[in-house]
Design a protein around this nucleic acid. Structure first.
Length: 260
DNA sequence: ATGCCCACGACACGTGGA
């Protein structure tokens, strides 16, 4: 089963790119972030017409996550547990049933957190605390679990074109990196780092100043696998082709394939 | 050293992104 995550920066603007990528990539389950629209205006019928089921957590203008799947979707959570007052559309957890297999997947849009001297950074860190608590519960289930999305976290120096220049950024701040490691320490592994431990790989390039052409990128979109999912891992990679097209998202899909 | 670009929604000298 091929699973991918993609921050599309507006599902409506990016619709042709997403449909094209689904058709050429043989992707079974695509987790979307930054869909930037309410559920009523999500282009569900376009995806259903190419045989994908759709689950959505939308919001006006900002955020928004979704799951597109060739297999039936059961919705488990439409927000990250731990704060009932948090109304931002950043988390969707589903169960995908394919034959005898059951795979739990979360589409995650972790807060950016900049600038670091504001409540935006406080919100990011508390959101990460909630994710750690929830991930701890999930790992205890000993199931095939995939926590994937735009983490807005640069885990290591190799994951950024200019580590020094990003030291004071919320994506590379020591507190952010430390909380990300707490998730890994529960037993989750990054799919791409299991396959390519040392390679410089980016999933995001700024729109400005020809960042993509200069390969000044970041690796901030991650697929984290539970131990049971790791046992099924076949391959993982990043498909930069959608970033080369006209009117692209600033992110490109990160994927993994699991033995099923 | 700084800004560059993009999407949204309803024009804004706007916000948020990363």
């Amino acid at each position: 089963m091929k699973i991918a995550t993609w921050n599309v920066n507006s599902v409506r603007v990016r619709l042709p790119h997403i449909v094209d990528w689904l058709k050429t990539s043989d992707c079974d389950v695509l987790l979307l972030q930054e869909t930037k629209t309410i559920n009523e205006t999500f282009p569900s019928t376009d995806f259903k017409s190419i045989n994908y089921e759709v689950a959505i957590v939308g919001q006006k203008s900002y955020n928004g996550v979704a799951v597109l799947s060739k297999f039936p979707i059961e919705i488990l959570e439409t927000s990250l547990p731990g704060d009932k007052k948090d109304s931002q559309a950043r988390y969707l957890e589903v169960l995908i049933k394919q034959k005898q297999n059951k795979i739990r997947l979360s589409s995650i849009y972790l807060p950016n957190g900049n600038p670091i001297d504001t409540d935006k950074f406080t919100y990011k860190l508390s959101w990460m605390d909630r994710l750690i608590r929830h991930a701890k519960k999930l790992v205890g289930n000993e199931e095939i679990t995939v926590l994937a999305g735009d983490y807005n976290v640069i885990p290591e120096e190799i994951d950024v074109y200019d580590p020094t220049g990003w030291e004071k950024d919320a994506l590379f701040h020591p507190s952010t990196r430390s909380k990300y490691r707490e998730i890994l320490n529960l037993g989750f592994y990054s799919s791409i780092r299991l396959i390519q431990p040392q390679k410089k790989l980016f999933s995001y390039w700024d729109y400005m100043a020809g960042s993509f052409q200069k390969n000044k990128g970041l690796l901030i979109d991650h697929i984290l696998l539970s131990p049971q999912a790791c046992d099924k891992l076949i391959d993982s990679g990043i498909d930069a082709y959608p970033r080369e097209k006209s009117k692209p998202s600033d992110h490109t899909p990160v994927w993994c394939s699991l033995k099923t």
